[in-house]
Every structure is written in C-alpha cells, then in structure tokens.
Design a binder for these strands. Structure first.
Lengths: 162, 162
DNA sequence: ATTGTAATGTTATAATATAACAATCTAGAA
DNA sequence: TTCTAGATTGTTATATTATAACATTACAAT
C-alpha cells in the first residue's frame, strides 16, 4: 500500500467550501465548453480536491472503491485524462500525482511550490518567471509550449516548526 | 519494447569527443570526492551520454545487455542513483528518463529545454530565472530546495523545418 | 425508434521502480 | 599477508504506475 495523503482533513481547513466551489466552477466551465462532467469524472475531481496533498492515480482509485466500488485503473486514468485536458487538474510530474487546478478558467503556465514536509502544494503564476523563461528560450531559439515548473522545498509553516 | 533514442548517432555529432570528455570529467570529479566510478557505473554514464535524447532506465538496461549481459533492473537503478547523487546525470521527471549533466562540477539548478520533435534536451542555467523563482518563493514564505524546471516545446531546427 | 459517438466496464499486460537477501569485491587494520 | 567491515553487485521477487484492446452501455441528434 501507499498513500500520499497524510490524513489531513482536506485542502480547505474550514468546511469544504473550497471543494464545493471548485466543483461548481468545473461544472460551469464544462457547460460552457459542451464538455460532459459526468458523475464519475466529477467524483474523481472531488476526491482530488478533498485531499490536502497531490493524489496518485491509485490513491484516487482506492477512494473511489472505498465504499464497495469496483472500478479498474483505466476508469480512473480516463477520468484524469479528461480533467487534465480541460485544465481542471494538474499532474505533478515529480510526484506522479494530481492536484486540482486553482485557475482552470484561464489558460496559464503554473508554478508549483511543493513542501517536502507536509506535502502541501501551492500553485502560483508569476509574470516575472514566465518572462525570464521566455527570454532564456528565445535566446536559445526555443519555442516554449509546456513548461513544467515544480519547486520542491519547505513551506512557511514547516520551516517555522523546525 | 520501447526506445526513446530515435537512433541518432549520439549527443556529439562529430566523433565522440563529447562523451569522452564527459567521462573524463566524471572520473576527475569522483577521484576528488573519493567516490568510486566503477566500470559498471562508468558504463551506464557512457550509455547515457551516447544517446542524443534522454534514456529511460530500461533503455539503459537494454543497451547494457545488448552484447550478452545479464544485468537486472536493480543494477541499473543503483548505478543511476549513484550518478544522480553525484550530479553526473539528471532525471527528467516529465519523461521518466535520464540525461548526462553538462555542469556536474558545480552545484546548480538546471533548466531544461526539451524538444517534442527531436527529443533533444539542452541544459541551461539562468540567473534571471533563478532570481525570479527565489523572489516568488520568498513572497510565499517558501524555502527553495530542489527546483524541477522542464520546458517542453520545439527547438530551433525542428521549428525551422516545419 | 434508430443510430453513431462518447463514455464506461473488463481483462490483461506493459513499463517503471524497489525490497530483500546473497554473494563478491575492496580498502584498510592487524 | 590475512582478516574484516563496509561498499558494491547479483538475484529473485514484487510493488507501483500506466495503457492496450475489446465489450458494453448511455446519450444526443436525427
């Protein structure tokens, strides 16, 4: 076995408002695009948002099947593909895991800060970093398409608590 | 089967000087540190440098065993771990693959430009990007340790040839 | 109602990675 | 030299992540 979620209550520390809000936004976005956020896909997205830390595909599967489900890996991977395609989640390459996207509405190049202690991931956008990368790319004659920027380190809390 | 190396001749297009030079540098670096670059580890490093594009662990294994070797996966992974530890190679997370490090001598935070057409990877360092990331991290109270920056896109040649 | 497409179910397997323990090698101490 | 402790490599088995291939079901547009 293996679980990446160190058993915190979820991304929002209050009541679940953040999960609900993310799902509502996802519904709206899919409605706009004529994409079908089916119950299965919605459930996968919900599971991902409920977790504090990124979840691996098999972590998601485990949660889906927790109450007697009998889903198989392809089911999860297909849902994840759909969510990725629509920018509703990101895959953290360095962790083989998935997180909800906080800014799915607008296309963007995300930068992640990943705490090695608590596992928390925060997604940010930075004009300056984007510009610096574009500049470096241009100098190399390179055309940027899909940047993967995952900064591992320690978040404020974990750094303070040492 | 699967192979990431699209059968080009190797990273250097002339004669192998670049592979040899990388190996010499590696030997020197290990000598300095009292680390043992054994024939096996040296061979793995050589295989990686001989490839134009990043190689997966099993690609390396295949090449090691091409002439009758009988090595098993742990052998390769252990050699890769050693080479990673000493900064002689990098792992490209978004490709589950490994490339030789062009700057193993000095500790650095690498930025990779990865061409989706030809598979070529070029490693660069950018003061500006490092600074932009530090700035963004500081603002978030985050302590940067291990940045993963892998920019996928198209290199000059592949962009020109379209 | 029919029908073509999208979505899901199901089985099997590919591709990547590591655990656990045995055997061997190497450098330094005795 | 011989011995020994630790590092390296060998070997077997298995965990983890991901996808191929084909069957079935659901849905939307005619």
């Amino acid at each position: 076995m293996k679980s990446r979620d160190k058993n915190f209550s979820g991304r929002d520390h209050e009541n679940g408002a953040c999960v609900e809000s993310a799902l509502e936004q996802a519904e709206a976005l899919c409605r706009d695009r004529g994409a079908r956020l089916t119950p299965l896909r919605r459930r996968v997205l919900e599971i991902i948002w409920e977790s504090r830390a990124p979840l691996g595909a098999y972590d998601v599967l485990e949660r889906m099947n927790a109450e007697g489900g009998r889903n198989a890996p392809p089911t999860v991977y297909r849902a994840l593909d759909f969510l990725l395609k629509h920018g509703l989640i990101h895959r953290i390459e360095s962790q083989k895991a998935f997180v909800g996207c906080a800014m799915s509405a607008d296309a963007h190049h995300a930068l992640f800060f990943i705490c090695r202690d608590c596992g928390n991931v925060s997604e940010t956008q930075s004009e300056a970093i984007g510009a610096a990368i574009e500049a470096s790319a241009t100098r190399a004659g390179f055309l940027v398409e899909t940047p993967v920027m995952e900064i591992s380190g320690r978040c404020q809390e974990c750094h303070d608590d040492e």
